[in-house]
Structure formats: C-alpha cells, structure tokens
Design a protein around this nucleic acid. Structure first.
Lengths: 342, 342
DNA sequence: ATGAAAGCGCTAACAA
DNA sequence: TTGTTAGCGCTTTCAT
C-alpha cells in the first residue's frame, strides 16, 4: 500500500529496528547472515529510506561553503548578491550557507580558503576555480576528508571535483564566432579578442571555441592574438585603444571576459566607421545599455540565479548520496540581442 | 540558538502544544486573547514552522496532475517522456504525478480533463493551455476548489492561473526576427511564416513579437500572412510547397510551431537558389539534422526538463503557501546555431 | 476552550 | 551481536 518503512523491514527480516538501521547506514556490528536477511527484506519490499524523516531525527543541517572571486567585476558582485538572497531561503531546507570572497586569479589565496573550509568541517564546498597546483591539491584534500566539491562557472581540469555547474564555455566561444561571423557577412578584416586572464579555464575555453569556428567557417576574417585585460575596465580601455589605433581594419570584437565598461569607452572614443560588430559576455547595466544603443550586437550570458540554485541541488544530492541528474549542472548560454532584452 | 519549535512557542505563550498548533493552522476553538498571546510568542521567537516535520506527521503526499496535448508532435512526446522520468524521482519528495494526454487544440477536451482532475481532488494541476471559454471556466472551478493551477509552455490569458512556466513567447518571436533579419542582411524579399494554430497563445505571441521587430527594424523584408499547419508535417509540407511556388522571392522562413519535418521536405523539393534563411522552433532529431546540413540557420528552443522541474517546484511552493520566486517560472529561450549544437 | 499523549519514519544512547 | 527506548518537530485523537 503506502511506502514500506523500517518497521516493515524489521518485521520481515525478523530483527529489531536498530539492526535495520545499522545495515541501512553501513555501521558494523551485524553478522553477515543477518545483513543478508535484512537486505533481502529491503529488496523484497522495495524499501527506500525517507530522507526527510532521517534528517529530522538526526537534526541534520547541511553546511555549504562558497568561495568566489572578490573585486569590482560586476558579474561576481551579482553572484555574491545572489548567494545572500539564497542564504535566507536555504535555511528552510536545513541548509546553511557561508561565503568567502577571495582575490581573483590567485590560486594560493583560493587554496588557503579551501583549507579553512576543510578545518570548519563543512559538508560541501562550491567554488569558482582558478587553475593552479595548490588548488588541485586543496580539492583533493577536501575530497579526502569526505567533503563534496562542486566547481561553479569556471571549472578545474582533470580534478577530483564532483561536478561542474556552468555553461559550456567552448560552445559559448563557438556561438560567439557563429554570430559574429554571420553578422560581419562578406566584410573582410580583422577580429580583436579581449580576455580577462588565461589562468581561468572558462576564458581559455571560450577562446578555443571561438577560434575553432572562426578558422573553419569564416576564413576571410583574421584573428588578432587575444589581449588580457584582467577583467578591469581601465585596463581593457587602454589595451583596446592601442589595438584600434594599430589596426584600422577591425571589423569585429569578441570580449570574453569582464571590464566591458572599458570596451565601450574605447569604442566611443575611437568612433570607427563603419563601427565594428561586437559580441561580449555577461549582461550588466553597461552591456545592456550598449546593446540598446547599437554599440554591442550580442551579449552572451549565464543565469547566475539558476547556477546557484543548481549548485545547491547538486550539493544536496551529493551529500545525500542520491544519484545526480547530469543535466542539472548544464546551464545554457543565453543570447541577448537588442530585440530580446528582458 | 537553534531554530525555535512549537514547544518553545508553547512555553513562552503559556499554553499547550495543541493550542499552538490550532493557531498555527488557523483552526478555530481558541479564544482571541489566547491567539494573541500565541502569535506574539511566535513573532518574538521568530518561529518558522518546519515543513518537513509537518509533512512527516500528517503523512502528506502531494498529488499533481499534468494535462498535456496528445499527438505525433515530437515536442509533446518529449514532454510526456520527461514527465515519466520525473514521476519516479518525485516519489522521493512525497509527490505523486499523474499525466493525461488530451487532444490538441481542443478546449472542450481539455476542460473535461480538468473537471476529472477536480473530482479526483488532486492538490494541483499543470496544463499546456488551449484558449477557450470552457477552459477558463474549468480553471476557475479548480481554483474555487482550492486546487492550484499552473500553465506550462502555453499560457491562458487573463485567467486565474497561479503561475506560468515557459518562455516569453513574444520575446522569442522578436529574437527570431532579429536573427533572421540580420542573417538576410541587405537581401530584400519576402518572409513566410508558418504557425500551428492561432488558438494557442504561444503561437499568437511568437507571431506578434516577430512582426513587431520585422516591421520596425527590417522594413525591406515583406511579411506574408501566416499559414496554419496544425503542427503536422504533411500539412506544413503541402502549404509551404504552395507558398514557394506562388512567390519566387522568399528570402526567409519563420516556423513558429511544429511539423518541421514537412518544412524540410518542402525545402528539399523546391531547391530554391539562393536558399531561404530559416529559423524554426524546438530542437528535435529533424531540426538538428537540418541545422547541421545548413538547411536551417537557427533553432529556438525551450528546455523541457527545466520547465517540468520548475513547474514542480512552483507547485510545491504554491501548495505549501510559500512565496514563489517569480524567476523560477521564467525559462530562457535557447538559441542553437550549427556551431553550438549540444 | 484547552491539554495530555501517541505517533509519523528514522536515529541514537543505552542495555542485554 | 542484537534489542529497547526515547526522542526529532509537528499533528491528531481523545479527554477534560
């Protein structure tokens, strides 16, 4: 009739509740023979543990730590704000969220924070990864301590992380190229690429995907080597201004990192004609305005709200040892034109 | 220290557990004065009821009914499959899902199914809406019986539905126009529009958005009146073949409903040169192949998995009377080019 | 109008 | 190695 309980299992297996519990939770002190009987009973009845009841009884609280980059980057600021708002709601689900802001592009700083999280004995850590040996070591230590690890937005290569939540950055780069190439149609010339840092995997992957498609499908367009603006507006402005002065035949720009305020400033100052077609990442007040003004042509975006929500769901499943639906972590890259701004 | 419980409230208010419970659940049989005291205690302690514990004790099961269109349309078939897979997992969360397939574009049939759901006294109904007076009446009856209603994919206008889960279809139409217009760049000519039926709101809205942007931004392109193919491949093939014969200057096609197998067949047969640019909805085996073969140029998509997941989350919140985050229901329209196929 | 006590499914301290 | 018992926070008879 209704779902079988531990009582049913105990009765069928002819043992007490505690014995069922011991088997259920893999605690020792149960004879092999008895274990068999209990397991058989569970299978026979199709028993599935009621996690809510279990959590109630053990007064369990999930403690999840987020390590995200600090700095003026408005994308990361939004992320921090998002976490704050989730923190309140999550309490209802017995989930306690802590957040620490670590210096960006700094593997040592991130590793140090992960070490701290391990000492606090949290249940899981979610982080925006920076590639570095220290970080990989710290992650491996976390896993060793039975702490779940999820990477968010920027992944860690070949690491022992449990899951990644974010967009497919190679695909995002390819999308940018597909759009930019089609928008530039026919017009030959050069394409400038602006990155934040090649130390973070998301930027590396976007560049890779972009170049793949550009080379294969739009051979008339010649790619300049990427410049690294550290996601900072001032630096991006300076670098791009130089580029625009050096090359008068730039027909397209792909900005795959932050600092787009600087990008726009440089464009406004240069007043090229015809203006270059521009594809950037992350919808902010700046990029939205630029889209409306016809200075940017497309903005690729990842929905931070969904990313945080997915990360939390995955974390819970990981901690509860429930199988994780791989689709949960996949966030589609959203594309905004001036026509479909929300 | 840890979250206050009913016991704490009872102690502070100087009443018994049952009295606290009565106030908490709005049951009568409590003097005004006592109610005040209890409420004051709750406020003072910052009490928030533990829903999991509550559900455990009342052995509550959420019963949610889905009413979705039947038919050969592969998009709706995917939806049905998605629901099946969710049905198993949802059991873990004390949620029981029932599904019924109703004839498409048929308001009476849908209304009849809704009536049946009401008699079954389910907790909530999720439906892909068809516009009709009967349906609006049935929805209003459901709400009257305290049953939550969520529309999925296609909304109901000015109805008493609790929430809508799906993409912004006006915006999707605008996106299609933005892309098609830019892809056609310069080339003047006519644009064909293929719809399923103007009885469903999503199609109406897509058309609206498409025409808005086309008129405003691409006045060189002239729009043909939409043809209605009922989301059936054979019908779409036939209609489009006629259109292509009548007008030799078709530069673009927007298919905003189903039956894209027929669209492709007609295009393959017509062999126009240069081939028209094509934007369609829903990524299926057919449309994916057409994208790869360079017959379609962009596919707009809604992620059914996420839509079902969101609908379930919203339903639970609605039933538990927890405030619903409006962002939960908003599903972004995904855009696929040949370059970013998953 | 109010309260005492048993129980939801699971866990944990303590006996045996 | 196994079992008994008392909760977790909330709801629900059944008394008073």
């Amino acid at each position: 009739m209704s779902r079988p309980t531990v009582h049913d299992v105990a009765r069928v297996a002819n043992v007490s509740l505690s014995t069922v519990d011991r088997v259920l939770n893999g605690r020792d002190g149960v004879r092999q023979a008895t274990q068999q009987r209990v397991r058989a009973a569970m299978k026979q009845l199709g028993y599935e543990r009621d996690i809510m009841a279990a959590n109630l009884s053990r007064k369990r609280v999930y403690r999840i730590h987020f390590a995200i980059p600090d700095g003026p980057n408005s994308f990361m600021r939004n992320l921090a704000a998002e976490l704050d708002s989730h923190a309140r709601l999550a309490l209802r689900d017995r989930t306690e969220i802590s957040v620490s802001l670590v210096p960006p592009f700094d593997g040592r700083a991130l590793a140090a924070d992960l070490r701290r999280a391990r000492e606090q004995a949290v249940d899981g850590v979610v982080m925006v990864a920076t590639e570095s040996a220290e970080v990989r070591q710290a992650v491996s230590d976390l896993r060793g301590a039975g702490i779940q690890v999820v990477t968010l937005i920027s992944d860690l290569s070949a690491s022992a992380r449990g899951h990644f939540v974010g967009i497919d950055n190679v695909s995002a780069g390819r999308t940018a190229a597909g759009l930019l190439g089609r928008f530039c149609q026919g017009r030959p010339g050069r394409i400038a690429i602006i990155a934040g840092s090649m130390l973070v995997r998301d930027h590396v992957e976007r560049r890779l995907g972009f170049e793949q498609v550009m080379h294969a499908e739009f051979p008339d367009l010649q790619l300049l080597p990427p410049v690294e603006g550290g996601d900072e507006a001032a630096r991006v402005d300076e670098l791009l201004t130089n580029v625009l002065q050096d090359c008068r035949d730039i027909v397209g720009i792909y900005s795959l990192g932050g600092g787009n305020r600087g990008l726009r400033a440089a464009l406004d100052r240069a007043k090229s004609s015809p203006r270059p077609l521009v594809v950037v990442h992350e919808l902010t007040d700046q990029s939205r305005a630029a889209l409306q003004d016809g200075v940017f042509d497309a903005v690729l975006q990842q929905d931070i709200h969904k990313e945080v929500a997915s990360a939390l769901i995955i974390m819970r499943n990981l901690i509860e040892a429930v199988p994780v639906d791989p689709r949960t972590g996949i966030i589609h890259t959203e594309i905004f034109l001036r026509d479909n701004l929300p």
